[in-house]
């Protein structure tokens, strides 16, 4: 299955992954419109962690035994057995924030509406996740892993 790997030794903390992610999850998919004209502003599902000289960008790790899937009260969080990705169904989400509290990586956020959560969807509709494609320094890699 494919996973996004963060390489801290190459992360230079520019934050272009966050910009790419927010734009990808915006209505317009255009950076200027998304940031300047969409209200509320789209949010990035990847987060840059910074403690110089260490930095890396982290998003949902799509855990094998994902605590958020176990904790979800409504069944909005599910794990796709085929791809191994943890998926979030906004239709079922009731915004109880339980998943936010149990996520060991702090990878789940409240969505722009403030009523449901948002997390990395691994950009399954794209050939390469947008954060990986936006990174100018190869600090994010999308590759097959065994487990």
């Amino acid at each position: 299955m494919k996973r996004i790997i963060a390489k801290q030794e190459h992360c230079m903390g520019c934050g272009l992954c966050e910009v790419g992610c927010a734009v990808q999850h915006s209505k317009s998919k255009d950076p200027i419109k998304a940031y300047n004209h969409e209200y509320p502003k789209p949010i990035s599902r990847i987060r840059l962690e910074l403690n110089k000289p260490v930095s890396f960008a982290i998003q949902c790790r799509h855990c094998e035994n994902a605590p958020c899937v176990v904790a979800c009260l409504t069944g909005a969080m599910t794990r796709d057995e085929e791809t191994g990705f943890v998926k979030h169904n906004p239709e079922k989400c009731m915004g109880c924030w339980t998943c936010i509290m149990v996520c060991p990586y702090g990878a789940i956020k409240a969505d722009v509406s403030g009523k449901i959560v948002a997390k990395c969807d691994a950009c399954t509709e794209l050939s390469v996740p947008v954060c990986v494609a936006s990174c100018p320094n190869g600090a994010l890699e999308c590759k097959e892993v065994t487990s």
Partner: peptide, 14 residues
């Protein structure tokens, strides 16, 4: 200014 999205990439790269 019409293009700047205040992403602060310029701030952290300079």
């Amino acid at each position: 200014e019409s293009k700047c999205i205040r992403c602060k990439v310029c701030v952290n790269q300079c």
